[in-house]
Amino acid sequence: MKTEETQEITCKVNGERITRLVPVRQHLVDFLRMDLQLTGSHIGCEHGVCGACSVRVDGKVVRGCLMLAVQADGQNIVTIEGLTDSGEVADLQAEFVERNALQCGYCTPGQLMTAAELLAEGEISTREEIRTFMSGNYCRCTGYHAIVDAIETTMKRREEASRAPRPAKGKA
């Protein structure tokens, strides 16, 4: 039987520089979950369909189960833990809670990682466009309506905030 091949990788995970020896066959989410205890990214199918393992690699959301950990060498990885700590989608997360856009929560980190990319585009989308953008993320609990609501509300709030007059410089 073939021996287990390993390689050392160094990458940035949630802003922190990480060096680890990884089996080359290990996928990224197993590495994040098992080696780094970043259990916020979930495993739902391991064949790239469900989206529960979505993480951000070099600024783009990808399927964590469809990338090898060894490929993360030199890359910048952001998981739901990092996204939370950065506050980037604090408004979206609050709206998910407020709107109850999640039930069991298993798909939720993936939904947020994907929605973050849509929100980052900074444009207003129709509900249909939101549904289409989110179509790679399974949710078995909510029926999607509340997820679309939460994203739509956050999008509109951001738009309103961006149009609000800014306080003059020097004023509190």
Binding site: G48, G51, S54, V57, K60, V61, V62, R63, L66, M67, T114, E117, L118, F133, S135, G136, N137
Partner: peptide
């Protein structure tokens, strides 16, 4: 083609 996360990669 697929979904955003798949298109990204």
């Amino acid at each position: 083609v697929a979904h955003v996360a798949v298109r990204n990669r």
